[in-house]
Every structure is written in C-alpha cells, then in structure tokens.
Amino acid sequence: MKKTANFTAKTKAIVKKHGGDRSALIAVLQDIQETFNYLPKEAMNTVSTMMGIPASRVYEVATFYNAFSLNPRGKHIVKICVGTACHVRGASAIQDKFEQKLLIKPGETNQDQQFTLELVNCVGACALGPVVVIDTEYHGQMTMNKVDKIINEINKEGAQQ
C-alpha cells in the first residue's frame, strides 16, 4: 500500500511539473522511469487520469518506445551496444557471454535484482567497439574474458557494501 501511495504522489508531482499538456506524455513517462527505474502500473494509471489520456494510449506509448521498461530493473543496467560497428567487431559473442554469465536474456533482470541486461543500437563510441555501458561507465574493446572480470568485480563491490 505504502509503495503505491509513493508512486502516486511522486507521479502527480511529475505531471504537474510538465503542465499537464497531452503532448508532454513521453517526457512525463521518461521522468517517471528516471524516478522509479521503470514504469509502475500505478504511475501510468495516475498519468492517464491526471492528463486525461486513455490508459490504452498511455500503454501504447509505454510499449512502443525502447526507452521504457514495464518491469522493475536491477541495481546495475548492462547495456550491450549492438550497433553495426560493434556487430562486425563481435558484439554477439559478448552478448552470449553476458547471457551465460548472468543467466538472463536481454530485457530481463536476474534473480537477486542485481543486473538487467539490455541491448542498445549504438552508443556512438565506435572506436571502443565492442563496447558495453554498465550504468554510466563505458567498457571498451570488450572480450569474453573481460565480461567475467567486470561482473566479478561488481559482485565483489556489492558484497563488500
């Protein structure tokens, strides 16, 4: 219950900040996602009521754009660049390795909510390719060996905290 109330209050503030104009829907959802790390259903319903946009239209927008996630995401977001330059430099092998290491597919979050795996169509750091962005950190010239190292490192840091 408390969580739902929290969603609603924060969502209301976000809608108000944007002035409630219907064209602000995408910006509103972007802010909600930034606040909660995903789009909670309660928040989308609040948006629908406050902005006078049918829930079906809100859900259309939420499911159309790559930027939005309908499920809670992990503490760390692993974004594998699958742009063309990274693809020809072997990004798919890196993807396979991450899937194997984290036991999840792109779009999924692992069981202890530590990692979410995502694919991104080019981060524009092609000189670093294949490149992976974890949270805000760029990891360039990725190799399968580096995948192990990086994930182990993050897990170790997490355990220490």
Binding site: A24, L29, E60, V61
Partner: peptide, 21 residues
C-alpha cells in the same frame, strides 16, 4: 526521443513530439 528508429521518419517524429506512439 523515446528510442525508436522509425522516428527519423518525419510523420512518426511529429507523432512523437505530439506525445503519441
């Protein structure tokens, strides 16, 4: 943008600015 390649297409880009898919 919300992350959709098709929004490079002008009419899709307009829809996006208007707050739609």
């Amino acid at each position: 943008g919300g992350g959709a390649f098709v929004c490079g297409e002008s009419s899709a880009l307009f829809a996006s600015i208007e707050g739609r898919a």
